[in-house]
């Protein structure tokens, strides 16, 4: 009798030949709510890629106060002109070699830099030399931002945007 009580669930159903009674809570209401939540989150989900920022200095008409002790620095001009409807032609003023794309522009800008700390001795421009991005009015903004990004990647710190040249 004692042994029978300890295993009474199994033995009871076996003895009576009846299926085990279901002791499950009704889940359908919860499933309803979960489906609603699922639909809500699918509808409101944001599938656009994340946006980030590039911090830039803006062209100042007044300019910074002149420093008498240091000679004026020659700026490195990156000229962008539209090519066709959406493309762009990149050139660095004073250098015959035109970059083929913005990854190439970053490589060229790095080669033009003089920074002994990074082992760069070939170039004539220091990291804080002014870099001016000179796009024509018809250049798409994406190319301008891309040129800025290339200059940042080449570790220039003083990058400016020129006024619109027609």
């Amino acid at each position: 009798m004692q042994a029978d009580q300890t295993v009474h669930h199994r033995s009871a159903s076996k003895r009576h030949g009846r299926p085990k009674p279901s002791m499950q809570p009704n889940l359908s209401a919860m499933i309803d709510v979960i489906f609603l939540l699922l639909i809500y989150f699918v509808v409101t989900a944001n599938f656009t890629p994340d946006e980030g920022v590039l911090t830039a200095k803006l062209p100042q008409g007044t300019g910074s106060p002149s420093q008498d002790m240091t000679p004026p620095q020659r700026p490195l001009n990156i000229v962008l002109s539209p090519a066709g409807e959406t493309q762009v032609r990149i050139s660095i003023q004073g250098y015959p070699q035109a970059p083929t794309g913005f990854a190439d522009l970053a490589v060229l800008l790095t080669q033009l830099q003089y920074d002994p700390e990074r082992g760069l001795h070939s170039g004539a421009f220091k990291p804080d030399s002014p870099v001016v991005i000179k796009p024509e009015a018809g250049v798409r903004w994406q190319h301008v931002a891309n040129a800025f990004n290339a200059a940042v990647r080449a570790r220039y710190t003083n990058i400016n945007f020129a006024q619109v040249s027609q």
């Binding site: 946006e51 980030g52 990854a103 994406q142 891309n146 990004n149």
Partner: peptide, 12 residues
Amino acid sequence: VPQLDEPTTREL
């Protein structure tokens, strides 16, 4: 917004 080649963007 612009899609960059090898971006150096940082989070806002």
